[in-house]
């Protein structure tokens, strides 16, 4: 179908009306259908911004050894195993394994003290406190991208943050 240029120009100069609104609605459906925004993207960005807001005070932990757990967020498999992070002030080792429909995270932080440990998952936050040997666990974590934020009583102004890991 083709229309002549005069007709097209006239149509182009017309004000947007109800039919155009219907077309836009169809277009919006089409865009969302062909190329949906990935599940969890908004939550991951929210989490990144939350961490960023802490940034001035944060010591980011570096991954040590094989990044078996630090897979990209679009991977859905659980990589059971052990992973170690380190920074000048703290070393954290965690092991992750599936349990029921959930994920169990056991961790150990050194130097040992009673550290407050936050598990950030999307918009959710779970908090626990390690024992005096620095051991902590989260028994019912959900699958998906996560970060730990650790606050030490010996230096409460500098929280320590892990990179994002996939549980």
């Amino acid at each position: 179908m083709s229309i002549d240029d005069t007709t097209l120009a006239l149509l182009a100069d017309g004000m947007l009306d109800e039919t155009d609104r219907v077309i836009f609605e169809g277009l919006a459906r089409m865009v969302e259908t062909v190329d949906p925004v990935p599940a969890g993207l908004v939550e991951r960005i929210g989490m990144a911004l939350t961490i960023e807001a802490l940034q001035a005070e944060v010591a980011e932990l570096r991954l040590v050894g094989e990044p078996a757990l630090a897979v990209r967020a679009d991977e859905t498999s659980i990589e059971a195993g052990t992973i170690t992070f380190t920074t000048d002030v703290l070393t954290v080792m965690i092991s992750v394994r599936p349990e029921g429909g959930h994920v169990r995270v056991d961790g150990w932080a050194a130097p040992a003290e009673e550290i407050e440990v936050e598990l950030h998952q999307g918009g959710d936050l779970t908090v626990t406190v390690s024992d005096e040997d620095g051991r902590f666990s989260f028994v019912d974590a959900d699958h998906g991208p996560a970060r730990l934020v650790l606050r030490r009583p010996s230096d409460p102004t500098v929280p320590v943050v892990t990179p994002q890991i996939e549980l």
Binding site: L11, A12, L16, T19, V22, I23
Partner: peptide
């Protein structure tokens, strides 16, 4: 685009309204 249709939307609208299989509902 806006407040008038502009040529892109005019083109699409012309094609749609000439297509009997399309209805704005």
């Amino acid at each position: 685009i806006g407040p008038t249709r502009g040529r892109c939307l005019a083109k699409l609208r012309a094609a749609l309204t000439a297509d009997p299989t399309w209805s704005p509902s």
